[in-house]
Design a protein around this nucleic acid. Structure first.
Length: 245
DNA sequence: AACAACCACAACCGCTTCTGA
DNA sequence: ATCAGAAGCGGTTGTGGTTGT
């Protein structure tokens, strides 16, 4: 099986056997160039005329999820996570519908995020993603903390911004406790902050969900909801680390 | 050093929905 | 109204990199 070892068949140039698996840079360039000239769409004929030994579906997917110029990948920001959690709680696995509210993000990426991060946490907490237990944990722990992280990060970004405005040389700001490899703040918060941020709550159709303030209320009146007298691992409430990607 | 187990993400598959002839 | 092909969707698998033994 000449899997990813370039077009396995050197003999004939017009063999109709389809390639599968990871895309090579050559294939990417073919696709990009063809679309630059002819535009997207009509994927099956595109595949044929661009000289790609791929299915139309494969070409479409590659373009939409990876090559498209406005696609954003990696570094899911706290506000994006928040939106994903919120919308998923409302709509379930409607990935593409959720993706519509996250500019530049694809349904595939959101789906992967859910599977790798969210389901992993459920597993760590030894409960099912669909259990009330886990949903409560998301709503009352994870989401508020993300919201908090958003605001502090935004504040940090602002101070950084003003600081760098004065001194253009930017050194890494060590004040933030985040160890995470991740995202340059500019990348995280440069986009649509107002639109994507807290503003989104209540802006959707059929939305009667209040803003995040009710989480705090909830905390203040204590453990009233510690319902469903269930196992709950001891670290259930205390393990911050696992909630923040 | 080598190998296994694990993880994150990219890509594929089967099915459904859309479109337009 | 029907039908075929294209596009879209969500579940699932594959692949390559990383981490653990």
């Amino acid at each position: 099986m000449g899997m990813h070892g370039i077009p396995s068949n050197g003999s004939g140039e017009e063999d109709l056997e389809l390639r599968r698996g990871p895309w090579t840079v050559e294939e990417d360039l073919l696709l990009i160039n063809y679309i630059a000239v002819h535009g997207e769409g009509r994927w099956n004929t595109l595949a044929r005329f661009a000289g790609l030994k791929r299915t139309g579906k494969s070409c479409r997917l590659r373009w939409l999820n990876y090559l498209r110029p406005d696609v954003r990948r990696g570094n899911i920001t706290p506000e994006e996570q928040l939106i994903i959690l919120e919308l998923h709680s409302r709509w379930g696995n409607r990935w593409s519908k959720i993706a519509q509210h996250l500019p530049g993000r694809t349904d595939n990426e959101i789906k992967n995020y859910w599977r790798t991060r969210v389901q992993k946490h459920a597993k760590q907490l030894k409960c099912d993603v669909n259990s009330k237990q886990f949903k409560d944990a998301m709503r009352y722990l994870w989401m508020p903390r993300l919201a908090e992280r958003m605001t502090t990060a935004a504040a940090a970004a602002e101070t950084v911004a003003t600081a760098t405005a004065v001194a253009t040389a930017s050194e890494s700001d060590s004040s933030a406790p985040t160890h995470l490899s991740s995202p340059p703040l500019s990348d995280c918060y440069g986009v649509n902050y107002g639109e994507l941020g807290l503003g989104f709550v209540g802006s959707f159709e059929e939305s009667q969900e209040p803003s995040f303030s009710h989480y705090d209320e909830f905390f203040s009146n204590g453990s009233s909801w510690a319902v469903s007298g269930e196992p709950l691992p001891e670290n259930f409430w205390t393990s911050d680390d696992i909630w923040l990607s």
